[in-house]
């Protein structure tokens, strides 16, 4: 068993990069008091815009920026409704997911014959993949921790998630901090979408995020809104997912549908185990 886990580690590290980036983005948003249920739609949109940008320019870097641009557009919609109009965040996020799923599916089907989706995307080299993994697993977590827990900006951002009125009463703008958090999330989720469609796959497919956004939401809870916690949570899910492939390969007798469920079940069990001790940001999901 231990051996199997070790063998599946490389796959776990690389395959869970999109999930990890999304988790990191959602951590920032939730710390600022926003629960972005639309993260699934954000990632899916980014996956598609990344393919567009990469195919048109022929460059992976352009693809990354294309993904980020797509995610920013979705963030703008979410922010406009939830920050500006103070609409319910859950409702807004749900609407965004439905919109993104429908819209990307529609575009994909309409343009199925177009070169953008037929031609294979520019190749991401092994060195680049390693760099991406290092940045996602090590560099970004350190930067995020520093930002959230060492800077004045981070302190105020967290205060927006705990008690926005106290922030407003002491001067800084709650809306500004929430928008900033949303932009950070969009950059990370945009990168997640681009990684998914350009590095892990060779192009876009309908609903290719397949629930990663929702898993990201629960991992943020599982990780108790702490950097270390979310890294651990993503690792557990990633390893369980990789292990599941290995089990599929060696054990034909088990229904693969059941195996597919393993990572979810494992994550769920862990979530149940610690649910009682979780304390969310006080004003998560509420108006400023």
């Amino acid at each position: 068993m231990i051996e199997m886990i070790i063998q599946s580690l490389p796959l776990a590290i690389f395959a869970s990069v999109p999930l990890l980036l999304a988790v990191e983005g959602e951590l920032v948003a939730e710390r600022a008091g926003m629960i972005n249920l639309g993260i699934e739609g954000m990632m899916l949109t980014a996956a598609m815009t990344a393919v567009f940008a990469a195919q048109i320019s022929g460059s992976i870097i352009a693809g990354l920026f294309g993904g980020i641009a797509g995610a920013l557009a979705v963030a703008a919609i979410f922010g406009f409704f939830s920050i500006r109009l103070k609409a319910d965040q859950i409702v807004t996020g749900t609407a965004i997911n439905l919109l993104a799923l429908g819209l990307t599916g529609f575009v994909y089907r309409e343009m199925q014959q177009s070169a953008i989706f037929v031609r294979s995307v520019p190749h991401v080299g092994a060195a680049a993949e390693n760099a991406i993994a290092i940045v996602s697993w090590i560099v970004i977590p350190i930067l995020l921790s520093l930002m959230l827990w060492m800077t004045a900006f981070g302190l105020r951002l967290r205060a927006c998630g705990e008690y926005p009125r106290a922030v407003a009463a002491s001067g800084p703008s709650v809306a500004m901090h929430r928008w900033a958090a949303l932009v950070i999330e969009a950059v990370l989720v945009g990168a997640a979408g681009a990684d998914l469609s350009l590095a892990l796959s060779s192009g876009f497919a309908e609903n290719m995020t397949s629930g990663r956004g929702f898993i990201a939401l629960s991992i943020v809870i599982f990780g108790r809104w702490k950097t270390r916690g979310i890294l651990l949570g993503t690792a557990v899910f990633g390893i369980a997912a990789a292990l599941q492939y290995a089990l599929q390969a060696m054990n034909q007798s088990l229904q693969f549908h059941l195996l597919l469920a393993i990572p979810y079940v494992v994550t769920l069990l862990i979530l149940c185990g610690i649910a009682g001790k979780v304390r969310a940001p006080e004003s998560l999901g509420r108006d400023a």
Partner: peptide
């Protein structure tokens, strides 16, 4: 208008750190 999980110092100087 205090934030329970923040320290006394952070609460006192929130916005003027």
């Amino acid at each position: 208008s205090l934030i329970p999980e923040f320290s006394i110092a952070e609460n006192i100087f929130l916005g003027r750190e």
